[in-house]
Simulated assay, not measured.
Amino acid sequence: MPERTKGVGEIDRSVVEDLGGIAVIRGGGKERGWNGIRYMQGMSAKNVGSTGLSVNVATVPPGAIAYAHVHEGFEVMLFIAQGRVKHTFGEGLKQEVINEAGDFIYIKPGVPHEVFNIGDEPLIAFVARSTADEWDKIVNYPSQYRPEE
C-alpha cells in the first residue's frame, strides 16, 4: 500500500473571522507547504468546520515538482492563474497534458498524477477539493523524481 502523505505547517485558527454563518480569512492566512508546493492557508474542516470541501491557493516555484500522488476518494479542480504546468498522469504516469494561465483542470479521484512547473515564473493555482480533509486522503504514488527518504 502506498504511503500516505503528510502536510507541513499548522492551521492558524486565529486568522478566521467567524461572522455567524460566514467565515473570512483575510490575505490568505499563514502560508504552509506540502510536497514542493506552497499554499495559502485556505479553508477546510480544520479551521472553518467545513464538511465537504476545502479550498486554497497553491504556488509551485519554477522547475519544482509536486511528486506523484493519488487523491483517494475526492475530486480536485484547479484554475491556473499564472504560469505553465505539465501533469503526467494515469497508470505509470505515461499520459501528459500541459496547461497555462486561464485553464481549468479537473482531476478524478484515484488518478495518479505528478505536477511539474515548466514555466519561468511561479505557478499559481486556485485549488478546490471535494473533501474537507485537505492532505489527509492523499497517497504517494511511485515517482522517479521523489528523493530517497
Score class of each variant (00 low, 15 high):
4 R>D: 11
5 T>M: 13
6 K>R: 15
7 G>P: 14
7 G>F: 12
9 G>P: 10
10 E>M: 10
12 D>L: 07
13 R>L: 08
13 R>A: 12
13 R>S: 13
14 S>L: 10
14 S>V: 09
15 V>W: 04
16 V>Q: 03
17 E>C: 04
20 G>N: 10
20 G>R: 11
21 G>C: 13
22 I>W: 08
23 A>M: 13
24 V>M: 14
24 V>D: 11
25 I>R: 04
26 R>D: 08
31 E>W: 03
33 G>E: 04
35 N>W: 01
35 N>C: 02
37 I>G: 00
38 R>D: 01
38 R>G: 00
41 Q>H: 01
43 M>H: 02
44 S>W: 05
44 S>A: 14
44 S>L: 04
46 K>V: 06
46 K>Q: 12
47 N>L: 03
47 N>V: 03
49 G>V: 10
50 S>L: 14
52 G>N: 15
53 L>I: 10
54 S>G: 15
55 V>I: 15
55 V>H: 13
57 V>K: 13
60 V>R: 02
62 P>Q: 08
65 I>N: 03
66 A>N: 08
66 A>G: 06
66 A>F: 02
66 A>L: 03
67 Y>P: 02
68 A>P: 05
70 V>T: 06
71 H>N: 04
72 E>D: 13
76 V>G: 02
76 V>T: 08
77 M>D: 08
78 L>S: 05
80 I>L: 14
81 A>M: 14
82 Q>K: 15
84 R>N: 05
84 R>W: 05
84 R>T: 08
88 T>H: 00
89 F>Y: 04
91 E>C: 05
94 K>H: 10
95 Q>Y: 11
96 E>I: 01
98 I>G: 00
100 E>T: 04
102 G>T: 09
102 G>D: 12
109 P>E: 06
109 P>N: 05
110 G>L: 02
110 G>E: 05
110 G>F: 02
110 G>H: 04
113 H>P: 11
114 E>M: 08
114 E>Y: 07
114 E>V: 08
115 V>I: 14
116 F>L: 03
117 N>R: 01
118 I>D: 01
118 I>H: 01
118 I>W: 00
121 E>Y: 00
121 E>C: 00
124 I>R: 06
124 I>P: 00
126 F>Y: 08
126 F>L: 11
130 S>C: 09
131 T>D: 13
132 A>N: 11
132 A>P: 15
134 E>R: 06
136 D>Y: 04
137 K>R: 14
140 N>Q: 15
143 S>H: 08
144 Q>D: 15
145 Y>H: 15
147 P>F: 12
